[in-house]
């Protein structure tokens, strides 16, 4: 078992500050974050986008990297891995996200 210096909850918290500017919802509640792999001072975020043609690609993955680096103490390297499998679908939106989208 590896010692984990960085908690994935802390990373998730930091990522809640990154919004999709079009929808106004953060990337966590939008269901874009698939996995967070933390090491002693490294973080790998496995994420997707709502659509492969999303023009926000660079901006969102850079913002994710920056937010983790700035807001999670002890991180020296952040890797953002953008994946398309499984493709994102609206079922991945959290309850909070759905509320933001006007569902309840």
């Amino acid at each position: 078992m590896t010692t984990t210096a960085i908690s994935s909850e802390r990373v998730m918290e930091a990522l809640k500050g990154v919004i999709d500017p079009e929808l106004g919802i953060n990337v966590v509640d939008l269901g874009l974050i698939y996995d967070i792999v933390t090491g002693e001072d490294t973080v790998r975020v496995v994420m997707t986008l709502t659509t492969p043609g999303c023009p926000l690609h660079e901006s969102i993955s850079e913002a994710v990297e920056t937010a983790v680096q700035l807001l999670v103490p002890g991180v020296s390297t952040v890797e953002v891995d953008l994946v398309w499998d499984p493709p994102w679908c609206t079922d991945l939106i959290t309850e909070d996200g759905l509320r933001e989208l006007g569902w309840r």
Partner: peptide, 22 residues
């Protein structure tokens, strides 16, 4: 190590972004 959710195999097309925009 913690995993929030299992991810499928990475299949990053690598060429899908606004970096292609002029």
């Amino acid at each position: 190590m913690s995993a929030a959710r299992a991810a499928g195999p990475s299949r990053t097309p690598g060429s899908i972004s606004s970096k292609h925009a002029p």
